[in-house]
Amino acid sequence: MADQVYFEDVKEGDAIPELRKNCSTQQLVIWAAASGDFYQIHYDMSFAKSTGLDNIIVHGALKNAFLGQLLHDWVGVAGKVREFGCQYRGMDYPNQDIVCRGVVTKKYVEGEQHFVELDVWTENPQGQRTTPGTARVVLPSRG
């Protein structure tokens, strides 16, 4: 993991390091088992097409979990991810890049805790934000 990031290191508008994903159909099946979401549009092409989709689609909750990883890795061992989430606005497909990004929107101190809020999202190969979301994390302070 990268060096620990501190509250004092970040400012509004800062982009956090991106996380790049590319799901094989195998990864989607592992996710189906891990999450308990066995809806066939995520691994059965003929089923997906029968519902009007062009392709198997990546689970929205998996993309949300990617955003969880983006944040977990960024806040480091001394930070905590307090809240994260997104809306599933666009579909993503297997074997295409899904780039997870975040930008700091606000930082503040409440009690003893140093909070940072962010916009987070995943981006498809066309640069569209398929899962816009927000997050709130706690970072350590240099004191």
Partner: peptide
């Protein structure tokens, strides 16, 4: 009859 997950937010 069709269903999609629209969004999720977790607070810990």
């Amino acid at each position: 009859k069709r269903i999609l997950n629209g969004g999720t937010t977790y607070e810990y």
